[in-house]
Design a protein around this nucleic acid. Structure first.
Lengths: 341, 341
DNA sequence: GACAATTCTGGAATCGGTTCCATTTTACGA
DNA sequence: TCGTAAAATGGAACCGATTCCAGAATTGTC
């Protein structure tokens, strides 16, 4: 259990070799399961390992083998409940396969993200899983290319990167949600979410537009606020929409942060959700099904995203080519999308 | 930017030395800011570093220096919103100080936790921050002692471990919350939370009992369910309490998971919170202030916990002795603690 | 101009493993 | 019994850095 000898120093393979009275190369061979090891040797080495409580040093192994069994995981914000679920599932799956996860928050900043990537490269992680802040930063692109390690993107669509990706079929869910509102008679449906420099927004927007088109209605840019996933942005723009006359009869908030900000604005103005206005959230908070008002939402399985990301990365680490995995979305109408008309 | 040469191999200090036409020890000295370096040498080395895009390898530096600048972070579940906030703040603070965080979920299992600790030891992390599953496992205690690295405990009270700790003053908040309910006339106040093998529960229980005593009332074990922080446990036991006759007029749920489970039980049974029953949560979910019913709660600053944990660890890494940092709690009455009588 | 003190620099050892290569030992068939 | 192939083992190089030590170059002083 100890892995440290009585002098406080670390127990190394040399100590084991000395105690067993063999060469250290023999100890290494024995422990790494090399075939050319006699039973006598095995016995001697195992006795010494046990007696000294020897544990091989990951660091030294990594330096020699060139593989750290460390995976970098970069997201905007681990406190985002969706990302937290992704991270948990992903960490479990990686751990199960002998890898550890180095977690880094990018805080929504391209600069921090880029620094983090460079740090991960210096730390020689075997691979990276990332939810990038933006797809259109040439700087990030260059940094990523210099990684030269397997990469899995979360919900991003970037070519020439030789990366795998877990992408979400936002289109279907958002189409259904928008259609649901249009069917009820809503026409002024505000859409508050992050900017179009990420696939997430583009695919959601595609669903939103398609539903209008399918209903034979015009989409108006006027009711779109596509500027950021942070609650503050959604708060400000929801407030702004609600001060218009006529104001929107429904709001779709895209993403966890936007939902928080939008709900806060409605709360401030004491507009009752599901009665004075219809509301749909894209992505779910925990407890959505318990709290009142029950929030209508487009759901996706965050845990599956984490597991898939881990699998795609493990596949690449085993030499396979990059590939994509698609996560479904499902719209569920609850009480929050009632009223408003 | 690249750190790889045209052959795809890593650029090492040897390449730099060769290009600059100097010894590799001189390169090392130059880069590590050793005083005995001539301006001419500095210029040659810096040119070569720039030209080759050299970046020192963390792994090799770690092996040589014996310090990895990696910190292990072990919690039950990163998807717990409280832990997620702690983790985010902690990671930011560590990163700011040049450390990276290796995240591991213990999934509430002592065995997983212990395996994780052993893995962190093998990875030679410089320190560990942990929210242990239980305080009374001699096995964990032994594993921790064998770590021989600075350790910061989150909300745990364990002696003989030579660890720092961020502890929460649950007593005050829970006392206030319980007093609030007693003052309103509640006597059957159910308490659903994790088991007494963690400080968290013991300190909360102390506040709960003290409030009864202060009010001249008897505490009954009958209304306590102290068996686990998982939602499932709280669900089952809340259900059970509510099937009794007479049933509790108020419920205190301790912790994020317990709150989720308890709320789910109330939801199932269609008991209206804040009207049919009074409800108080210990620790907050995000959006507590927005959703209806507005949940009365005992709040603590999770971000501060993360920052404090990082600071305590950094202090120990700088050779200081272990110490403790206390986080306050504050009870806020909202609508959920109305009614029930 | 000579000598001592100081500043720089290069070589080698080291961190803790893995793996190649050469040598010794064993096993087996002729 | 001998020869050869296979199995087993030890020694040394290596992964990519840091640091000690010794020697070279420079500076300063008399």
């Amino acid at each position: 259990m100890s892995s440290e000898n009585e002098n406080g120093g670390q127990v190394t393979i040399r100590h084991v070799a000395a105690r067993a009275g063999v060469a250290l190369s023999s100890v290494s061979r024995t422990l790494s399961g090399h075939p050319d090891v006699s039973p006598a040797m095995r016995a001697k080495v195992e006795e010494a390992v046990k007696a000294l409580g020897y544990e091989p040093d990951f660091l030294a192994q990594s330096l020699r083998s060139g593989t750290t069994r460390n995976i970098g995981f970069i997201i905007r914000d681990i406190a985002n409940p969706l990302f937290a679920l992704v991270a948990r599932a992903c960490e479990q799956e990686l751990r199960r396969n002998g890898y550890s996860m180095i977690l880094m928050n990018s805080d929504g900043s391209v600069e921090t993200e880029s620094k983090n990537l460079m740090l991960l490269r210096r730390r020689r992680v075997d691979g990276v899983i990332a939810s990038l802040v933006a797809e259109d930063s040439p700087y990030i692109k260059k940094t990523i290319l210099s990684l030269r390690r397997p990469l899995v993107l979360l919900d991003r669509d970037m070519k020439d990167l030789n990366a795998s990706a877990v992408i979400t079929d936002h289109y279907t869910g958002v189409f259904e949600a928008t259609k649901h509102l249009l069917d009820k008679g809503h026409r002024r449906i505000a859409f508050v979410t992050g900017s179009e420099n990420v696939y997430t927004t583009r695919d959601r927007l595609r669903g939103y537009r398609a539903a209008f088109t399918a209903a034979g209605e015009e989409v108006s840019e006027k009711w779109m606020a596509l500027g950021g996933f942070d609650p503050e942005y959604a708060l400000v723009h929801t407030r702004n929409f609600l001060s218009k006359n006529p104001r929107p009869t429904a709001i779709i908030a895209g993403g966890i942060g936007s939902t928080a900000g939008s709900l806060r604005a409605l709360n401030e103005l004491e507009i009752e959700i599901g009665k004075d206005i219809a509301f749909v959230a894209l992505d779910e908070w925990p407890l959505f099904d318990i709290f009142r008002p029950k929030i209508s939402s487009v759901y996706r399985d965050a845990q599956a995203m984490g597991v898939e990301a881990a699998h795609l990365l493990l596949e690449m680490l085993n030499g396979k080519n990059p590939s994509e995995s698609v996560i479904e979305t499902k719209f569920t109408a609850r009480t929050s999308s009632e009223g408003g008309l």
